[in-house]
Design a protein around this nucleic acid. Structure first.
Length: 303
DNA sequence: ACACGTAGAGAACTGGT
DNA sequence: ACCAGCACTCTACGTGT
């Protein structure tokens, strides 16, 4: 990984690339794109093992919850070759075979570890499809790890528990992903995911604030390429709507979509109901119903 | 093209048993 | 665990500008 050679962000062309060495990441400071990860930390470890100072050289990637062994592995290659590429003698070969076997067992020996290993593969897959940042993946992985530790996964499908962990992380960190967004990228039903989610949430005692429409505004506006003023306007509308309890029992995405529709017209940055419906995963009908309601009760005049 | 309105179907939550 | 009732949303229209 030649991260030190990167000078421009491939996403936004910004030149402010920063290296977070202790996390092993190279990140664009402007758009937050992670350009490289698992970069080896070349700095000397603080702990000194020798007396000459030169022995402080233990390096490696930082620890992360994203691998079942937290990324701290020693790999014994399968080839029966030594460092110079020469073949190993029969005796050594047998010895290495045994070492490999034991390491395999040590890595995934108990059921929990094996479970985690499988789960993290799934987490990686769905995180990719939801384009979650590393921080979000780590939080989801941590939640899943706790669920495994409490024995919650036993007898339930790994996939549904992983999806539920992602959803819980999403709520905890106020990410704007709906349950549908997550169900779409898993192999299990909405019912399974929401049941698993309830179980984990209760067992871990995670408190989440019920997400209001507000959390969707910036994501939708981004996808619609609307300027910041529209975003602010939308939030004002939503705030007033919440005060009048116009949002209760309504799909938050529908309310957000309607607020954006109103705001975009107020700011003369017209977007059609169709366009807004597409990014917000609600239908035009719902946008219409919500926006009529909002306009009526908030006494907003659209010309 | 876009916005508007409606009817029937359907999914999801609540409370009851 | 299943069921009924409920409010809300969706699909699929037709209509109007």
């Amino acid at each position: 990984m030649k991260s030190e050679n990167i000078v421009k962000c491939p996403e936004c062309d910004s030149r402010s690339i920063s290296q977070d060495i202790s996390r092993g990441e190279t990140v664009c400071a402007d758009c937050g794109l992670v350009i490289a990860e698992n970069v080896i930390d070349p700095r000397e470890e603080w702990t000194e093992f020798g007396t000459d100072g030169a022995s402080k050289s233990r390096v490696g990637t930082p620890s992360t919850p994203l691998f079942h062994d937290k990324g701290l592995t020693t790999a014994i290659p399968w080839q029966n070759k030594d460092y110079y590429g020469n073949g190993l003698s029969g005796k050594t070969r047998i010895q290495f075979h045994r070492l490999r076997k034991w390491q395999q067992r040590a890595n995934t020996a108990n059921g929990n570890e094996r479970n985690l290993a499988a789960a993290l593969v799934e987490l990686d897959r769905i995180s990719g499809r939801l384009s979650l940042s590393r921080r979000h993946r780590e939080e989801a992985a941590t939640i899943y790890r706790m669920a495994v530790d409490r024995g919650l996964v036993r007898g339930r499908s790994i996939d549904s528990m992983v999806a539920a962990s992602v959803y819980l992380m999403n709520q905890k960190l106020q990410l704007a992903r709906s349950l549908e967004n997550i169900v779409d990228v898993t192999r299990c039903s909405r019912k399974e995911v929401s049941r698993a989610h309830k179980i984990i949430k209760a067992a871990l005692g995670v408190r989440t604030t019920i997400p209001g429409p507000g959390i969707y505004v910036s994501r939708f506006c981004n996808e619609l390429e609307l300027p910041l003023v529209v975003e602010e306007r939308s939030n004002e509308v939503i705030l007033r709507a919440e005060k009048l309890e116009l949002t209760h029992g309504r799909s938050p995405m529908g309310v957000a979509a309607a607020a954006i529709y109103i705001a975009s017209r107020l700011e003369k940055q017209f977007r059609t109901q169709r366009e807004i419906a597409d990014v917000s995963d609600v239908t035009e009908v719902t946008i219409r119903n919500r926006y009529k309601e909002l306009v009526l009760h908030l006494e907003i005049v659209l010309e």
